[in-house]
């Protein structure tokens, strides 16, 4: 439960950072394909997905513990997950790209 809610928070933050121009470019810098500019609908998609990941992460925390302590733990998880995201963006953006591609392949198998 804890691992799942942490993973969801981390994924959520990756999506939220993808909705920002600077980080979108950072993450894409590892890809071979040419850059595609960040479109409006794409941005909305990233934001909604990211925010819902964070929301589900909160619900998992609250379900695993009590509501009150769930919120406390969620705040801590957000801090750590956001820190991880921002460090990876700064030092290893290509890892984030690989993670996203792996996730996409898992969720939409051909």
């Amino acid at each position: 439960m804890i691992i799942l809610s942490y993973a969801l928070a981390f994924t959520g933050f990756i999506f939220l950072s993808l909705a920002m121009k600077r980080h979108y470019r950072q993450i894409q810098s590892g890809s071979v394909q040419a850059l595609r500019p960040l479109g409006k609908s794409q941005r909305l998609f990233f934001r909604v997905t990211g925010a819902s990941c964070l929301a589900i992460s909160l619900m998992l925390c609250m379900a695993g513990l009590s509501v009150a302590i769930g919120i406390v733990q969620w705040a801590g998880i957000l801090t750590l997950a956001a820190l991880q995201t921002s460090l990876l963006l700064a030092y290893r953006p290509q890892w984030l790209l690989m993670l996203i591609l792996a996730l996409a392949r898992r969720s939409f198998p051909r």
Partner: peptide, 9 residues
């Protein structure tokens, strides 16, 4: 919010 993840070493 804009600089939420920003860290430029």
């Amino acid at each position: 919010f804009k600089d939420f993840f920003t860290f430029r070493p």
